[in-house]
């Protein structure tokens, strides 16, 4: 049985079962793959024969949406279109409600945002190798961000769009059947939510009072 994150004299620790650590690490790896694939698509590094049809279709859809993209995802004004995938679009959101402004901002900042997220996720996988999982004060926010990206990805895959959806997922997780992929994802979402809540509650507790 997992024991939540709590503050220690040197940071934070949580006792997780080895299968829990393995599942979380695998989820981090999945998000890493998504982000890396996006990077490769933009730099044109990926052109394996098998994905041609899919790429053509994605391009076609962007054209259809009136974004007039080049194949590398840049638009006529030199901006960068958001990812088609909903989970990726949530991890790398638009920085402006004005699509043109958002595309320009993305052109300048998306790759560094991707790299920061990749570094967080890789560090989280390292931390998940340990038993107990222990984090220094410096590592805790890094682990928290990675865990949050995992949660955002699961929530997107589960179609969570409002608080009622989120509540439904928690109910599904409570039922605990894990009989379907969706039920398993719901359990993982509830588990990572619980883990993150305990970590940040502990972090808020030890945060010094205002100057």
């Amino acid at each position: 049985m997992a024991r939540a994150f709590r503050a220690t004299t040197r940071g934070y620790k949580a006792d997780l079962e080895s299968h829990e650590r393995r599942l979380l690490s695998q989820l981090c790896a999945d998000v890493i793959t998504m982000l890396e694939t996006r990077g490769k698509q933009l730099t044109g590094d990926d052109a394996p024969a098998g994905t041609d049809a899919e790429d053509d279709y994605a391009h076609f859809r962007r054209e259809l949406a009136g974004l007039g993209d080049q194949i590398d995802g840049s638009d006529a004004a030199g901006g960068l279109a958001p990812p088609d995938d909903a989970a990726l679009a949530r991890l790398l959101p638009d920085a402006s409600s004005d699509p043109q402004e958002a595309a320009q901002f993305r052109r300048l900042s998306e790759s560094s945002l991707r790299e920061s997220k990749l570094a967080d996720l890789r560090a989280a996988r390292m931390a998940l190798e340990g038993e107990p999982v222990s984090l220094t004060e410096e590592q805790a926010p890094v682990f928290g961000r990675a865990l949050n990206d995992v949660r955002l990805t699961l929530a997107s895959r589960l179609g969570v769009e409002d608080e009622a959806d989120a509540e439904q997922i928690h109910q599904m997780a409570k039922a605990g059947s894990a009989a379907t992929t969706e039920a398993l994802m719901a359990e993982l979402y509830a588990f990572s939510t619980w883990l993150q809540e305990t970590l940040f509650s502990a972090m808020l507790d030890v945060m010094p009072e205002d100057d």
Partner: peptide
């Protein structure tokens, strides 16, 4: 958004922007 936790958001506002509790 329905995913980010209240404790997490409060922590980010405090630690990143240096806002008071």
């Amino acid at each position: 958004d329905p995913v980010n936790l209240m404790s997490y958001v409060a922590w980010v506002f405090r630690s990143y922007f240096g806002h008071s509790k």
